[in-house]
Design a protein around this nucleic acid. Structure first.
Length: 784
DNA sequence: CTCCACCGCCTTTTT
DNA sequence: GGCGGTGGAG
């Protein structure tokens, strides 16, 4: 590679090192002793254990600046890896700012994936690929697998493609090729997992394509099989830095170890307490055994927190303490005082959303006895994205501006993927997946039968689908309306392809032409769905995004890995995102709703991974709490709609783990004030909670008892619903089968069964439901 | 071939 | 409560 030779020419160029060492280093001044330690220890393996909010990024970026200032490495000799584009961008910006110049010269600062793409394009032939390979996203991946599964005559209902995709991803995360999948795993996917894996890989090669997992896997394989290539990079990357090391999977770990094996100048930064990607193959073990992997490693602990109040830190520590096998860190802060972590229970999810909405507005106005807080400084962090809807609904009705972060990514949207498929096909006419995607979008009268004919024509002649389509039309195989439309399409594509090479037309103009002439834009203009205008907007945005690239090809190469749409608009908005998406961020005020067993910790996580899963959930709780700087509000609801079914919920076990002295229990004003607390008299619900809590250790549950007490005081004075609660609590035990009852949500019904504190009720409108007795009243007691 | 109504499954979390 | 897949009608 010529660029590589060029780089090699700089070897030994560090002669000015001594001169550089004498330069002033003002950037070191703002560091605390631990940070400074981590920054100045440049050679040999270093593990930086950095708790939340301890200035990890600062240390990391300062380290880079230090390396550069001392002249120990040139910008392109430093390999700095992050997990997200956001983190990479931020680091680049910070380094640039500290150096007082744009850090464009750091080509190897990026995500694992983007760096691997770069490497793999250079050495594609060693993986049996051409260097212009395409990167498939999950969607393409699934469609491809589905084809293989169906071709094998397997019922893809019983053996879904998604499942297979998951298995294969898993293997790739562990750096396993089809040949090296252990025998023990052979039973996967009805004993045909490895077989399909091999087929899939072969097909990818045919398509000159890779999936996300391949990026790492191919590079690890190349490094292993081609020592010359490896040693080239071992020499080139003189210093390696890794962010979020606790999130590395086996493949990434092997990749790093291979690269660092020579000089061992590797600095990994991480926090075992923030490892939340186990489900994606991350191995906390990687960070736990760093010192074994790199004997003599220097371990630096960053424990001074600059972000949160003492109460918030104490609450977070209280929760994370429940995990075994930690490396052990205790965050501390010089800050004292501040508000305690606030805890509140609600009747249901809607009520929770309503309360949070009001709370946000109050904070914004500063009516909570505090300085007003900007909407930008508040965030709602949920466990699962479906929880977001309740907030979006509520905020829309009250007109509270919000932004959803990390929702469906821009480039994952239907219209964007369609448009990109057109672009792909123009740039590389042999892209069969793209062809399949758009042959009949917009509708061209090309159904299954016509598409099969295209497949056959392509296969028989050993050509791409697009070429096969031409043949099928020319041979008269496909006639009539569909045939004419197909001919038009193939000719258009050819024409656009020519235009792509024409310098008179900018690629942005070309993109517009493609979308218009293909009829794709018209398709959405015709569509009367309320969301089609939005789609058209997105298409416009897509064309605008092309501005930043040289040509369509350049755009496509980057888009799958780099394009994110967290375009920060200037408007003041509350952020809504998942806990996962929140890692690395911080907000003065944080809301953590939905702390209910089954939701958080997620039932599925616990079912699938047992104690390990629970511990990961707990780390997630830790991450959530530590996002907050000043105000952290945790909440849960007693009822929640799951899959459209109402379900009663128990407060999360993590709530019990919050240390009492750092928590303040709030009682919601007005409605349902007694949701839980009013039950102090010992209702079935209460005793069930008690029972569960007795099992969990530390039932001394802090805030919990106070909550009961507090709400109990108020219980009787609550108007409306809560009065109703109190009444019906005493009546609970006296329910009988056949009795007519009323439920807040379901309306009227008759009891058909009683099971402890649960009733089975045949509701007139809602049908048969299981409900908690407490939430049902004998029908005469209906309020209002 | 397309459209539409119905059914079943589902939801963690993402580069 | 939503999405994709299916099956029957136009």
């Amino acid at each position: 590679m010529s660029s590589f030779d060029e780089m090699d020419a700089f070897e030994g160029a560090s002669l000015s090192a001594r001169a550089m060492a004498a330069r002033p280093k003002p950037y070191l001044d703002g560091l605390n002793p631990a940070q400074r330690d981590a920054v100045e220890c440049l050679d040999g393996p270093v593990l930086m254990l950095a708790g939340a909010g301890t200035g990890k990024t600062k240390a990391l970026t300062t380290r880079i600046v230090h390396l550069l200032t001392l002249g120990q490495a040139r910008p392109n000799e430093i390999l700095a890896v992050t997990f997200t584009n956001k983190a990479a961008r931020e680091m680049k910006e910070r380094v640039g700012r500290m150096l007082g110049q744009p850090a464009e010269g750091m080509p190897w600062l990026g995500t694992f994936h983007s760096i691997c793409v770069k490497l793999l394009r250079r050495h594609a032939e060693l993986a049996g690929l051409k260097s212009n390979f395409t990167i498939l996203d999950t969607d393409d991946q699934i469609r491809l697998l589905k084809q293989l599964i169906q071709a094998a005559g397997i019922d893809d209902k019983r053996w879904p493609a998604r499942m297979l995709a998951g298995i294969i991803d898993d293997w790739k995360n562990r750096a396993l090729t089809p040949e090296s999948v252990p025998v023990a795993a052979a039973s996967a996917y009805n004993h045909r997992g490895t077989e399909f894996y091999a087929q899939y890989q072969a097909r990818l090669k045919e398509l000159n394509a890779v999936d996300f997992g391949d990026l790492l896997l191919h590079m690890v394989t190349i490094f292993q099989n081609h020592p010359d290539v490896l040693s080239q990079y071992q020499r080139w990357f003189r210093y390696i830095m890794v962010d979020e090391y606790q999130d590395t999977n086996v493949a990434q770990y092997m990749w790093l170890r291979l690269l660092a094996a020579g000089h061992k100048n590797i600095c990994c930064v991480g926090d075992d307490d923030q490892s939340i990607y186990g489900w994606r193959g991350a191995e906390v073990g990687n960070i736990l055994r760093f010192e074994k992997d790199f004997p003599g490693a220097k371990v630096v602990r960053l424990e001074q927190n600059y972000r949160s109040t003492e109460h918030i830190l104490a609450a977070a520590s209280g929760v994370i303490r429940g995990n075994a096998g930690r490396l052990g860190k205790e965050l501390w802060t010089e800050a004292t005082g501040g508000e305690k972590v606030r805890l509140i229970g609600h009747w249901d999810g809607e009520e929770e959303a309503r309360w949070i909405g009001e709370e946000i507005e109050a904070m914004q106005r500063g009516t909570r006895g505090q300085d007003p807080v900007d909407l930008n400084q508040m965030a709602i962090l949920v466990r699962a994205s479906h929880q977001m809807r309740a907030f979006e609904d509520r905020f829309l009705t009250i007109g509270l501006p919000y932004r959803v972060i990390g929702g469906p990514r821009f480039y994952e949207r239907l219209e964007i993927r369609d448009a990109m498929a057109y672009f792909r096909l123009v740039v590389s006419p042999e892209d069969d997946l793209a062809f399949e995607r758009i042959v009949n979008t917009p509708k061209r009268g090309l159904g299954d039968k016509a598409q099969q004919k295209i497949q056959i024509a392509a296969r028989e002649n050993g050509v791409s689908l697009l070429e096969g389509a031409r043949l099928a039309v020319d041979s008269g195989e496909i006639k009539g309306k569909g045939g004419a439309a197909l001919r038009q399409l193939t000719e258009d594509l050819r024409r656009w392809g020519r235009m792509a090479g024409d310098s008179d037309i900018s690629h942005m103009e070309l993109a517009e032409i493609i979308l218009d002439e293909s009829g794709y834009t018209a398709m959405w203009q015709m569509d009367k769905n309320p969301d089609s205008p939005g789609r058209l907007e997105n298409l416009k945005e897509l064309v605008k995004a092309l501005e930043n690239f040289e040509n369509l090809q350049g755009f496509l190469e980057h888009v799958s890995l780099v394009m994110d749409n967290d375009k920060q608009d200037a408007e003041q908005k509350v952020s809504i995102m998942t806990l996962h998406a929140a890692k690395g961020l911080e907000f003065p005020a944080v809301f953590l709703p939905g702390w209910e067993d089954g939701l958080f910790p997620s039932q599925r996580s616990m079912d699938e991974s047992g104690l390990k899963g629970l511990e990961e959930e707990r780390r997630l709780a830790y991450v959530g709490i530590t996002r907050a700087e000043k105000i952290c509000t945790i909440s849960f609801a007693g009822n929640r709609r799951v899959f459209g079914q109402w379900q009663s919920q128990l407060p999360s076990r993590f709530i019990d783990e919050l240390p009492e002295e750092h928590v303040e229990v709030l009682t919601p004003p007005g409605l349902y004030g007694g949701g839980y607390g009013a039950a102090a008299g010992g209702t079935p619900v209460q005793s069930r909670i008690d029972e569960r809590m007795a099992q969990a250790d530390g039932y001394n549950s802090p805030g919990w008892k106070r909550m009961q007490a507090r709400a109990g005081e108020r219980g009787l004075s609550q108007p409306r619903e809560s009065r109703n609660q109190v009444i019906d609590l005493t009546a609970t035990s006296s329910f009988t089968i056949g009795e007519r009852v009323f439920h807040q949500k379901f309306g009227y019904g008759a009891i058909t069964g009683i099971e402890g504190d649960k009733l089975e009720v045949d509701f007139e409108k809602a049908g048969v439901k299981k409900v908690i007795a407490k939430f049902v009243t004998a029908h005469d007691d209906v309020p209002f």
